[in-house]
């Protein structure tokens, strides 16, 4: 009986994920409504629930993909994977204001450059404080403070040790998760309530998942603006970190 059910779930994994996410969202919106009087947005609750589930999925299976490593929930991996995520992000542009998008150019580029450089400097500073002194490790950890893709790409280009590369991925993951959870709380203090600041936000934070999740929980209308700049971040980071930023780091720290 139980085996049969598990077979049905495994054969229809994507459909299972629709049901699981639907139920998760229903419960999350109920919590948001009843326990926080709607002050704490339902999707913010749902994202936290999702991350908690991912944690349990991770410790029970020892895998890298959170809840989706648990056999019957494999569909979560398809639904929350890069393909459908990008598909849905592009779809959000459907509701975006074309003039705001056009004006995104200059603030977008400025915030992207600032975002990559500032993250890098902060990451390098933290690595220095923890006793890393060689330019390759410093650059890799600094790059990881950008996104969890920039870190390993930079690390393998420079020949960093695998421990340092793992560390850079972890730093990027912490950034992404904190951005998802923290954005709705910080939004009103940093004026994150209009397309312009969302564009700047995407460029500064750079983590597509973090920005996408964080803005969704803040105000879904802001998603296309933030997501658009954020998707350029990883590419620019992979361009600057192993080249210009590495050379500067090496010139300073030898």
């Amino acid at each position: 009986m139980f085996e049969m059910l598990s077979e049905v779930f495994k054969d229809n994994s994507l459909v299972v994920s629709f049901a699981v996410i639907g139920v998760t969202m229903y419960i999350s919106y109920l919590i948001s409504d009843k326990l926080t009087n709607g002050k704490f947005h339902g999707s913010a609750v749902a994202i936290i629930v999702g991350l908690v589930l991912a944690y349990f999925g991770g410790i029970t299976t020892g895998g890298e993909n959170g809840l989706s490593d648990v056999g019957i929930f494999a569909g979560i991996g398809i639904m929350g994977g890069g393909m459908l995520r990008d598909f849905a992000i592009v779809a959000t542009a459907f509701g975006a204001n074309i003039d705001e998008m056009k004006k995104a150019g200059l603030p977008g580029i400025i915030s992207l450059l600032f975002g990559v450089v500032v993250s890098f400097v902060v990451g390098v500073s933290v690595a220095l404080a923890f006793g890393y002194t060689d330019a390759v490790s410093l650059t890799t950890i600094g790059a990881g403070a950008g996104t969890y893709i920039v870190g390993p790409v930079t690390g393998s280009a420079l020949g960093a040790s695998s421990a340092v590369i793992t560390l850079s991925i972890a730093a990027g993951l912490v950034k992404s998760i904190l951005t998802m959870i923290g954005t709705p709380f910080i939004a009103k203090y940093i004026g994150l309530n209009n397309p312009r600041s969302a564009i700047v936000y995407g460029g500064l934070m750079g983590t597509t998942s973090g920005v996408a999740g964080g803005l969704a929980a803040t105000d879904p209308k802001l998603v296309p603006y933030g997501a658009m700049t954020a998707t350029f971040y990883t590419g620019i980071g992979c361009l600057l970190a192993p080249s210009v930023l590495f050379l500067i780091t090496r010139a300073i720290f030898g």
């Binding site: 991350l51 589930l53 991770g58 994977g81 560390l167 998802m180 999740g213 969704a216 879904p220």
Partner: peptide, 22 residues
């Protein structure tokens, strides 16, 4: 479908690795 997909994305993050990073 964007928000549900983002929640599925949250549920497949490598949270354990992030916390294990020290």
């Amino acid at each position: 479908m964007y928000i549900p997909i983002v929640i599925a994305m949250a549920a497949k993050q490598n949270v354990v690795a992030a916390l294990d990073g020290g």
